[in-house]
Simulated scan of single mutants.
Amino acid sequence: MPSISTSERYVWTYVGNLYVKIWAPPADTNSPSTAPIVLFHDSLGSVELWRDFPEILALTLGRQVIAYDRPGFGRSYARTDTLEADFIINEAAGAFAAVRSELEIEDFIAFGHSVGGAMAAVCAAAFPKQCVALITEAAQAFVEDRTVKGIRDAEAVFAQDGQINRLKKYHGEKAQWVLRAWVDTWVSDEFQHWTLNEILPRVTCPVLAIHGEDDEFGSTAHPERYTSLPKGPCVMELVQGCGHVPHKEKPDIVNGVVREFLTRYVG
């Protein structure tokens, strides 16, 4: 079986270092003109929490896959400040821009899970000539009652003895900040009116929205919003018997759908 090569590096910003990991397919299946896939992790996520999914993507698609830890997450620099309410829209000019510049990324495919899907959409809108496809997975497009309830339920679980250690495994001493950044932002009064209504019409590339039918953090109204765009082909894939993490719960389905979508609309 062909092997995937991996490399790690840190990208310097004026605040601190961002951790980046790259999965490269065998040389005979990749070419300099093949747009890499950039992964945007979820609210509690990190590079390592993607587990083997990036490797499988790189091998299946013959494309380079790039993932990075946002500031305050994983192996990137720690944060002690309050997460800004406009953190989603800031991603395009912030961490993503730094990674894109350092790695000299031209064309790219934006692939985001959960809030990372919203960030991927923002980046697709910010770089319309360079983003050749947008793939969202369990992504939110607005604040829904189900989302807030899911976050409150998760907060109660993490409050139990020892549960925060699940986050410390991936975020170390940053775990508490990661949890509070997620909960306190999404349930705040200031954030309740957040939507991507102004951003999504600026996305011009093909869009694939993957969503589990049993997603505890969002109804199908979210993928419907992502695939109701006036420009570019839009495809919605509802995965049966699946919750909030399709690439973990139904990896074969996700890989197949992504491969079919990119083969048809990107080449």
Rank of each mutant, 00 (worst) to 15 (best):
P54I: 03
V99T: 07
Y265P: 06
E213I: 14
G212N: 07
I164K: 11
D153K: 11
E260K: 15
V183H: 13
C131K: 02
R264K: 15
P206H: 12
V239L: 11
M236Q: 09
I37W: 03
T82M: 08
L229C: 07
K231T: 08
Y10C: 05
V266R: 01
E173K: 10
G172T: 07
P26K: 09
I210A: 04
I199L: 00
A98V: 01
Q64C: 14
D153G: 03
E249R: 02
L83S: 09
A221S: 14
Q64S: 14
V183G: 03
V183M: 03
K231N: 11
G256D: 10
C131D: 02
R70D: 02
R225H: 15
V20Q: 08
P128G: 07
W186M: 12
Y68A: 01
P233Y: 07
H247P: 02
W182T: 06
D28H: 14
C234K: 13
Q176A: 15
A138Y: 09
Y170E: 05
I22S: 04
A93E: 15
V47I: 12
M1E: 14
H193L: 12
A67E: 13
R180Q: 13
L200T: 06
R79W: 05
W182Q: 12
C242I: 00
M119L: 07
P128Q: 06
I253P: 00
V258L: 01
I135S: 07
E137Y: 04
V245C: 09
Q140M: 15
V245E: 04
A58W: 03
M236F: 07
